[in-house]
């Protein structure tokens, strides 16, 4: 996938406008990070891309084909999503969950092959969950469950990976590992992130949303400024530079103390 084009996208629930006219082009082969305060519409925008929200107004095209004309199954072969999932008490094993990533490639009655299994084990190996392959998914911690879900995404062999606040339940160690792993895949990534410093470290481009509008777009250096932190997030912070020249947010300003 080369490009996703979003034109004048609006979305409202119960009369409240969540997205108020988003227009942008998202390259399909970069690491894009979506930033913005809670309730700014990050998740809503991503849910439009992965087809959970129907388009009310505006349009989304993938490589010039309107999203609604792409069958869900075809889309699932190209885009994998690691979302905020709820936990049901289902007694699936870790390997079974990972194998569900093969769903968009399977016909009715078609069984999982040995290739599928080795693909799943490889993915679990990459996310550090291979040893837990026979454990019950339920018995894992939140962070472990998320790593299994990432493996399931990898088994889908996507061209684009959408991460909807993927680092929610993760310790900083796994946050770093997850983002580094995803970056090393060399596929397109669109990730909604909370941590601005992490976004600066891993993303090629940043998009900043506020109140359902796209406020800024650009490289980390262009986007992460003291002025942006004040207008978008309402915090006074100092933006310095890390050892590699990337912006680094320091929240320890005088007004915060």
């Amino acid at each position: 996938m080369r490009e996703i084009t979003i034109q004048n996208l609006h979305f409202s629930i119960d009369g409240r406008e969540i997205l108020q006219g988003i227009t942008t082009r998202l390259p399909g082969d970069r690491f894009l990070a979506l930033l913005g305060p809670n309730g700014c519409g990050k998740s809503t925008l991503l849910k439009h891309l992965y087809r959970v929200h129907p388009i009310q107004e505006g349009s989304i095209e993938m490589d010039s084909t309107p999203l609604a004309e792409i069958p869900l199954r075809t889309a699932a072969q190209k885009i994998a999503v690691m979302g905020q999932f709820h936990t049901v008490d289902f007694d699936f094993s870790v390997l079974e969950i990972a194998l569900m990533g093969r769903t968009p490639y399977k016909e009715n009655f078609e069984e999982d092959t040995e290739e599928d299994t080795s693909l799943a084990l490889e993915a679990l190996e990459m996310t550090g969950m291979a040893e837990a392959r026979n454990r019950s998914f339920n018995s894992l911690s939140g962070g472990e469950q998320q790593r299994v879900m990432l493996a399931r995404c990898l088994v889908q062999q996507p061209e684009l990976l959408i991460l909807d606040e993927p680092t929610n339940h993760l310790d900083i160690k796994y946050q770093l590992e997850l983002l580094a792993l995803v970056r090393a895949l060399k596929i397109g990534v669109i990730a909604a992130l909370h941590d601005i410093n992490l976004a600066a470290m891993y993303a090629d481009r940043l998009l900043v949303l506020r109140d359902g509008r796209l406020e800024r777009e650009g490289t980390p250096r262009e986007v992460i400024t003291e002025e942006m932190l004040l207008t978008t997030y309402g915090v006074h912070a100092h933006v310095g530079m890390d050892s590699t020249g990337l912006p680094l947010v320091d929240y320890r300003t005088e007004s915060a103390l």
């Binding site: 992965y50 959970v52 699932a76 072969q77």
Partner: peptide, 9 residues
Amino acid sequence: GEELAVTLG
């Protein structure tokens, strides 16, 4: 869940 099902096609 319904959302995950949709993303799996």
